[in-house]
Design a protein around this nucleic acid. Structure first.
Lengths: 143, 143
DNA sequence: GGTAATATTTAACAAAGTTAACTAATTTTG
DNA sequence: CAAAATTAGTTAACTTTGTTAAATATTACC
């Protein structure tokens, strides 16, 4: 790695530690961070399937199956058997689930607010655009 | 959230999902990502204590204690009772541990390389400096 | 010198991941 | 078109790794 890459590496290390430390645990509104993330995913991908959720979070189908069961039992999400393919269950958020997502002052929102306070509007937009460029590249060319 | 904040929020969501999906599991060189991160931390903070590691990864002392035990048993790190305070054990990496860190083409390194390919030198430096500014602000003012 | 605090470990337990094996539905193919 | 293969999801058994509570050993403080 050259010097610029090394500097980026170091700051990315810090960012990664921060994200991992802040996201892996904690409970708000009676749901854990993992539960919340799943609810939010389903909220933003209405009618998605368990398979898709498993892929998005990179965990095995049985693990997702158990999480979904919990969320259904607690009336945060709902599933409906697809009429096109009856193996498939389409997921959606209940009013309770939506309420939690809408009212959740979540980790990312707090970060976004802090970030917008510490940067000028131009800097924020520049950061967003650079990150966006990078993410497109990284996410598409995954091994 | 205003429009700029919202855009940042969205891209940060993507980044967070990416980090969580890529870091939370996986095994290289016979150690899991968690083990690797602890070894690397000790590598970069020679003579640090279990307490410090626990704080850095935001997990409880018993959890770290078990991880350290595993790493010691597998000859990846070593501990030495401090002569100044015999409650404390100073941690260091063994040659095996150092080897793993040195030879690990790890997640962050791959990201850094991809990022440096998709951005110009100026853009990369700008991104690093913006992220750095943001991290200082965020990490210091944690709740 | 007795009490409080600190670093670490042990024990008991809970959450959430894994693989393997199963069901039910759909698709492929000879 | 029926048998075989594939796919989405679940159940069961197990492992890893987190937690809290309690124990140990050491140090710090009136």
């Amino acid at each position: 790695m050259n010097k610029s890459e090394q500097k980026f590496y170091d700051i990315f290390t810090e960012l990664q530690c921060f994200i991992l430390a802040n996201m892996s645990k904690g409970e708000v509104n009676g749901v854990t961070a993992t539960h919340y993330n799943i609810i939010e995913y389903i909220y933003r991908h209405d009618k998605c399937t368990g398979k898709q959720v498993a892929k998005a979070f990179n965990i095995s189908p049985p693990a997702i199956s158990r999480q979904l069961k919990f969320l259904i039992e607690n009336n945060l999400i709902a599933q409906e058997q697809s009429s096109l393919d009856r193996r498939v269950f389409n997921l959606s958020t209940t009013d309770n689930g939506k309420f939690i997502v809408d009212s959740s002052e979540n980790f990312r929102e707090r970060v976004a607010k802090k970030v917008s306070k510490s940067l000028t509007k131009n800097e924020l937009e520049s950061l967003t655009s650079l990150l966006s460029k990078v993410m497109t590249e990284i996410v598409e060319n995954q091994t």
